[in-house]
Amino acid sequence: MAKIVGGICTTHVPYIGRAIAKNLQQDPYWKPFFDGFPPIHAWLDQVKPDVAVVVYNDHGLNFFLDKMPTFSIGAAPEYHHADEGWGIPTTGSFMGDQDLSWHMIDSLIEDEFDLTTCQEMLVDHAFTIPIDLLLPNRQAGSIRTVPVCQNTVQFPLPSAKRCLAFGRAIRKAIESWDSDARVVVLGTGGLSHQLDGERAGFINKKFDLEFMDKLVSEPDWVSQYSIPDIVELTGTQGVELLNWVTCRGVLGDKVKIVHSNYHIPISNTAAGTLAMESI
């Protein structure tokens, strides 16, 4: 059966794509953020994942507001990035893993997660940037991927409790896949930030750090908060932490930290990174 090697949660600010393209990793503004990655690169070299299941949210590339699935999954042979309108570089394509995609679809729908299946799917910066951060220099082209997209754009959003349960169902799906593949799970976005309104620029370091701590030791802790609570505590886009919650659900009851990093600001965002291994 397939093995889940661990999970990595990290921010996906669009401008990171530009910083990667311009090799600004050692630039004083970017260094405190990029310095969070070499220990995770070393860990990835050891655990050698074959497939990445990427939990993220689309920002108006694949999904417009005409059709907005709460949970959707890619089932394509490959995935392409495209022009997102705000001037970030377009990356190369990513391999899919249709066997895992369809196994997850079968298992998740049997478990009553009735997600939308996508045999063609554009992937935006929330998918491409974390993979390029974790597998630099286009090693990203060598790992197979399954995109899992959660709606964090148009409310109502799925609750933290639901996302955690979704993650646990994804774990069950991956662990029942008849394959010797090694699977890493990514959860992208957050942490606290707000782009819109008079409260633009809102950041909540205290809550972010508590969230990161509890995500490791007590993942159900976040379920006490409603979606409006999370917006109030982390900002209108901080609510992307739901992708971290789903990722954590995939990792099972107990995890240990591989590496963590937290830096303010990258663009308007508190940039968190947290790599975990199941124990």
């Binding site: 309104g197 917006v231 209108t236």
Partner: peptide, 15 residues
């Protein structure tokens, strides 16, 4: 609706 100062929830009414 929950009121969060300086913040608009992009819900069905706004959509």
């Amino acid at each position: 609706k929950r009121v969060i100062p300086g913040t608009t929830i992009f819900d069905g009414d706004m959509a």
